[in-house]
Structures are given as structure tokens and as C-alpha cells.
């Protein structure tokens, strides 16, 4: 296809992506190195019979005018990145020098908002990703062995947790595990503890969110593995059976190696998706014990009256760096696949 034709065909899609994905990233970067103007102070002298005193007061009008004229604020460089709410360089180094053990150091660092969010995000990713892949494979193998007639309805039901709006799905589960909900009330009965609440303890909150994550993402890995299972060569399976391999051995030595590329694909996609965890925290109202990077940005923008653009920008940049790191293997994977195809 000539370059000219290509250009006209791709133009609308490219314009949309450049204007609304690439430029906003630049805008986020610019916001993160600026901060809202400080309040304008005026010093006036007030005199009374006993002498004159200097009075400093806030000039609300001038402040509002300045802020309206220059909503971006003034340039402050990387200060937002290093302050307490973000990378907290000072606090971390102080904690490092004053803590006598690694545990004490971590405990102090994990109280800082960004590291707290990072701790949950990483824990969530590390647990959800492998569980989704393993359980998805197990379910796919199970469904594959079922009689044909019930496969269709099985796939239908299996798709539901993934298709459901993440926020709505987490609200539905939240109502069930709530103190008065069916699961919550049952747990209280089992442990004979009427105050037992999954919301109250950080550990239970994390477990709840991880369970939700597995529930929500399992269908994707199930469908991918299920499709992969349809392509397992029957000849190889039969040959293995004739050689006396049990069904378990066939599974480990024939099926799993055949599905390995899919495992890698899922691993890369899941790592990225789970790193962005956001909606369940809102749905489960879990922000007291579990926050994520995306939630911090959302919260900064939600700040009533004046969104904290600078803070949201800095956290966004940190998130983007994290995503890009997780993305590199996927890009390499795609690049290799492309070169294999074209050569």
C-alpha cells in the first residue's frame, strides 16, 4: 500500500490516539512538575494610638485571580515526586538510618501512602496472576473432558464473572461478604464472633480483594486455555496413550508443553492488568486498608473543590513507569513474533 493511501486510512485513528493518549501523558508530566500557586499574602500596617504593627493577611481575590489565570501553577521541578505523599525520599532515608532491623524499616516505609499502595498492588499482582493461570488451566481441562452437550452452558456461566462491570461485580460480592450478607453472616456463625468483619482487618480485606481478582480474571485464562486445548494434536495424545502414559502423565508431558506459549502470553497480560487494580477498591470500600496506585490518582483528582493535579500527575508518572517496566517483556515477545512471521 502506498504511503499516501496508508496515511489517509490511518489518519482518524492516529489523530485520536495522539491527541487523547500521547498528549495527555505529556500533560501529566508537565502537571507533575508544577504546583498550584500559593496564596497571595498582603502585608499592611495597622496603626493605633499605641504604635504600628505589621499585619499579614490573605488576599483571597488576588489568589483566586492568579489561580484562575494560571491554573497550572508555578514550576517546582521534582519536589512533588520526592515529598512525603510520593517517593518520600527524606522519610525513607530517615527510616533507613534510624531503624535497627529490616522489619522495623519496612514497617515505617509501608506507612507512607505511596509505598502502602505499592505494597498492596504488588501483593495483589503476585497472588492473583499465578492463581488465575493455574486455576484457569484446571477448569479448562475439566470442561474439555465434559460431554459436548453441557460445554456450551458451561462456557456461558464461566464468562459471567469477567464480562460483569468490575465495579458492579465487586459491589455484588461486597454485599455478600458484608456483615449482614449471606457469606459474612455465615462466617460470623462459624467463628461464633458477631463482630467479625472482612472490612475491619487489613489482612482479611486483602484476601477478599485477591479472591475477587481471581474470580474476575479466571474466565479469561480459562477461555484462552480452552481454545488452546482444542489445538492439542490427537496423534501425539494417542501415541502417548499407546506408550502407556497415564492421563496425568499425558497432561504434564504433552498438554502443558503445548500450552506453554499461552501461559507466557497470559502471564504478561495478567501482570499488566493486575497492576492497574482500581475498581474493586471502590466497590469493596476497601480504601482504609488497601490502596493502589490508580486509587491514589483517583483520590487526588476527587479532592473536593480543587483537584490535586500536581500530586495526581506525579503518581501517574510513577504508575506509567511501572507499567512500562511490566510491558517490556510483552513488547519483546510481540517483536520476536513479528520478526518470525515476516522472515
Amino acid at each position: 500500500m502506498p504511503n499516501r493511501t496508508f496515511f489517509w486510512f490511518i489518519l482518524p485513528a492516529m489523530t485520536a490516539m495522539i491527541l487523547l493518549i500521547a498528549l495527555p501523558i505529556v500533560s501529566v508530566l508537565i502537571q507533575s512538575v508544577h504546583i498550584q500557586h500559593e496564596q497571595v499574602l498582603v502585608t499592611s500596617e495597622s496603626c493605633d494610638p499605641f504604635g504600628c504593627t505589621q499585619v499579614t493577611s490573605i488576599d483571597t481575590e488576588a489568589t483566586a485571580k492568579l489561580r484562575a489565570e494560571k491554573p497550572l501553577g508555578r514550576f517546582i521541578g521534582l519536589d512533588t515526586y520526592t515529598d512525603r505523599a510520593h517517593l518520600a525520599i527524606d522519610e525513607v532515608s530517615k527510616a533507613w538510618s534510624s531503624s535497627d532491623s529490616m522489619g522495623a524499616f519496612l514497617k515505617r516505609v509501608l506507612n507512607l501512602p505511596l509505598y502502602k499502595a505499592l505494597a498492596f498492588t504488588i501483593t495483589y499482582t503476585v497472588f492473583v496472576t499465578p492463581l488465575v493461570i493455574l486455576l484457569g488451566l484446571a477448569v479448562a481441562v475439566g470442561v474439555n473432558n465434559l460431554p459436548k452437550i453441557i460445554k456450551g452452558p458451561t462456557v456461558f456461566i464461566s464468562l459471567l464473572p469477567m464480562i460483569i462491570t468490575p465495579l458492579v461485580g465487586s459491589i455484588i460480592l461486597f454485599w455478600m461478604v458484608d456483615g449482614d450478607g449471606i457469606i459474612g453472616a455465615m462466617l460470623q456463625r462459624i467463628f461464633e464472633d458477631n463482630s467479625l468483619s472482612l472490612k475491619a482487618s487489613p489482612r482479611l480485606t486483602w484476601i477478599m480483594l485477591i479472591v475477587y481478582g481471581v474470580w474476575h480474571h479466571l474466565p479469561f485464562s480459562f477461555i484462552v486455555f480452552y481454545a488452546g486445548l482444542q489445538t492439542v494434536s490427537e496423534d501425539t495424545m494417542e501415541a502417548a496413550m499407546i506408550d502407556g502414559a497415564s492421563s496425568w502423565q499425558r497432561m504434564i508431558h504433552v498438554v502443558v508443553p503445548h500450552l506453554m506459549p499461552l501461559v507466557i502470553f497470559l502471564l504478561l497480560i495478567q501482570l499488566m492488568d493486575n497492576f492497574r487494580v482500581f475498581e474493586p477498591i471502590i466497590g469493596f470500600s476497601a480504601e482504609a486498608h488497601a490502596t493502589s496506585l490508580s486509587w491514589i490518582i483517583f483520590n487526588a483528582l476527587r479532592e473536593s473543590g480543587s483537584p490535586l493535579f500536581s500530586s495526581a500527575g506525579a503518581t501517574s508518572m510513577i504508575t506509567i513507569v511501572g507499567v512500562v517496566i511490566l510491558l517490556v517483556p510483552l513488547l519483546v515477545h510481540t517483536y520476536r513474533g513479528y520478526n518470525k512471521k515476516t522472515n
Binding site: I297, A300, F309, G313, S316
Partner: peptide, 9 residues
């Protein structure tokens, strides 16, 4: 949400 923080201003 990172893109949204770039749109608002």
C-alpha cells in the same frame, strides 16, 4: 485513570 489526570486541566 492516569490519562484522566491529564485530561482534566
Amino acid at each position: 485513570i492516569t490519562l484522566v489526570s491529564g485530561y482534566l486541566l
